[in-house]
Write a protein that binds this DNA or RNA. Structure first.
Lengths: 176, 176
DNA sequence: ACCTGAACACCGTTCAAGT
DNA sequence: ACCTGAACACCGTTCAAGT
């Protein structure tokens, strides 16, 4: 049996590459992780990644999109919790992935696919949070400004290290 | 006269390198700008930059520190304006430099000098904004959380494109 | 369809050598 | 003290070639 016939189905290989990229981007940062390192960790050669993804930026989009969807799914289990509690959960959940957030921001200006994903993310986050504010009984006036602001604050709390008390105080203020 | 004797004093050359780096980092981003491009624009060779700065990260610190000091100086002329007005001025003033902000965030985890500068920046921004809130008559209770949150929002407004109305609405909400 | 080895242009950084 | 040319290891990406 030849070495480069698929030992398993190609969807699984794609997932393995995404797994490896997620782990390494999270731990070493986007610029600090080479495609060679991802490939080695996934058991392939660097240029094999190009069969599954057109470039490194699009691989990053695959990584963050999968993480976002998983987080949203898990968040839905907390929909009856107070808003500040839900926001705190999001911040704690994504804090380990903060290097992914800063990478998206840093590369959105250069990479069209990252820019497009980033815009979709904000539209989605705005919509989810707006609904959260409504269910918390927030007044309709100024609701857009409030939700946009809240998304920026959550991003800021993920990308900046604060102790738990300060994080909580900010989120309480935000949800009040 | 030999070519590589200084035609002018070395402080001026250092400033020229900072000027070139500021312009190119701002326009093309940090990762999108090579030291060779900066050097050429400043009329030297790439490795000459290493006589003035230990590495590319420290050059970035030099750039952002100079921009921050200039912005703070100019801001002091507006100290009698309403707080929301001052914040709007800051956002508009630094919006063109948003690639510098995202670069600092993206590299703070990897580069000790950038991390150190970033912490100093937040300490300074917190202090300045806290005084701004006080002068605007904000209550002392919850003032820390409010200032930290406001700094995150200002960073978010700089790094995310919003139309003017939305920016203003968010800043009004923040200062109210 | 899937994977590789070899190559390409580029990058930040180092260093011995010049003036 | 200030600056350069040449080199180093590395990077993302391409492509002809293999199975």
């Amino acid at each position: 049996m030849p070495r480069n016939r698929r030992p398993q189905d190609p969807e699984a290989k794609r997932e393995e590459i995404l797994d490896a990229a997620t782990e390494l981007f999270t731990r070493l940062g986007y610029e600090g992780t080479s495609l060679k390192a991802i490939a080695t960790s996934a058991g392939v050669t660097a240029n094999t990644i190009y069969w599954y993804f057109p470039d490194k930026d699009t691989l990053l989009v695959g990584v963050v999109d999968r993480l976002l969807m998983a987080a949203l799914t898990d968040l839905s289990a907390l929909e009856d919790e107070p808003l500040a509690e839900q926001l705190l959960w999001v911040v704690q959940r994504l804090r380990d992935n903060h290097q992914l957030v800063t990478a998206v921001h840093a590369r959105a200006d250069t990479s069209p696919p990252i820019d497009a994903w980033h815009r979709r993310f904000h539209d989605l986050a705005d919509a989810v949070l707006k609904e959260g504010f409504r269910q918390a009984g927030a007044p309709e006036s100024g609701l857009d400004a409030r939700t946009h602001m809240a998304v920026l604050v959550v991003e800021g709390l993920i990308t900046h290290t604060h102790d738990g008390d300060r994080t909580r105080a900010i989120l309480d203020l935000l949800a009040s």
